[in-house]
């Protein structure tokens, strides 16, 4: 019990340290550059306390729940020895966590608005909604595919750079032929897919797999799943832009 309290205090101190820069930046710009007082100061202070407590609980929960679970599942899949089951899990995890991602929902809605604005699709509610939904499915499938490729790479022990650089070259080639209006949305979609809960789980899965498979080094082979998940959405959305034509 005592060590639990000490551990929590240490995590709280770390959380406060992590929040220091953002507090300083906002205070500096508010008071020195914009020269305005803080609106609702007590609300802001309560908010900061919540953020610190939340961060502390989150990190504690990672250590107790998400990390061990990701590793245990990697271990169980390796013992089961079914490649299909593992790849199906990787796809489901990528697809399932992305399809409901709030940041992605926001970006695809904006993208639909941009497309309607430029006159590529009809500016009716229904058309825009279906455009946004198709874009969301595209991105979710791309993240599922990313985890499948990433997990397969860990199993085979391929060096990551060839795959990622190959992906970059594909992005460059597609950028040249894709409609320019989709490019900004495509490049951004790579960043919005990886949420705060997915990242630890996927990282633990990768590291877990690289630990149990003989001949793999967790430090070299375990990371990289997130990298695929930020690259494939760009490729898929560029292709989406080309296929949707009209552009």
């Amino acid at each position: 019990m005592k060590s639990f309290a000490r551990r929590s205090l240490r995590l709280l101190a770390a959380a406060i340290r992590d929040l220091m820069p953002i507090t300083l930046v906002i205070t500096f710009f508010q008071l020195a550059v914009l020269q305005q007082p803080f609106p609702n100061l007590e609300r802001v202070l309560i908010g900061v306390v919540f953020v610190a407590l939340g961060l502390m609980l989150f990190v504690r929960g990672l250590e107790m729940g998400l990390f061990p679970l990701g590793e245990a599942m990697a271990d169980a899949f390796a013992k089961k020895g079914s490649l299909i089951a593992l790849l199906a899990f990787a796809f489901a995890l990528g697809f399932g966590t992305t399809i409901a991602e709030p940041a992605l929902i926001a970006v695809t809605a904006e993208a639909a608005e941009a497309a309607a604005d430029e006159g590529f699709i009809f500016a009716t509610e229904k058309v825009m909604q279906s455009y946004a939904f198709q874009l969301r499915i595209t991105v979710a499938v791309s993240v599922g595919v990313a985890l499948v490729i990433g997990v397969f790479r860990i199993l085979k022990g391929w060096p990551i750079q060839y795959l990622i650089i190959g992906g970059y070259l594909l992005v460059v080639a597609l950028t040249a032929v894709a409609p320019p209006e989709i490019v900004g949305i495509a490049y951004d979609s790579g960043g919005v897919t990886t949420s705060t809960i997915t990242v630890p789980l996927v990282t633990a899965l990768g590291v877990g797999l690289a630990t149990v498979i003989r001949g793999r080094n967790p430090a070299i082979d375990g990371f990289g799943l997130i990298a695929f998940a930020s690259l494939t959405p760009i490729i898929f959305v560029l292709i989406f832009g080309m296929v949707m034509g009209g552009f």
């Binding site: 309560i46 939340g54 609980l57 929960g61 990672l62 705060t196």
Partner: peptide, 23 residues
């Protein structure tokens, strides 16, 4: 693991409220 998940959800929830309130 279940307790850990509860912590993660609670923590992330608090974190987000704080961000929405303040930052």
């Amino acid at each position: 693991v279940v307790i850990g998940f509860v912590y993660v959800v609670l923590g992330l929830g608090l974190f987000l409220i704080g961000l929405e309130e303040a930052l």
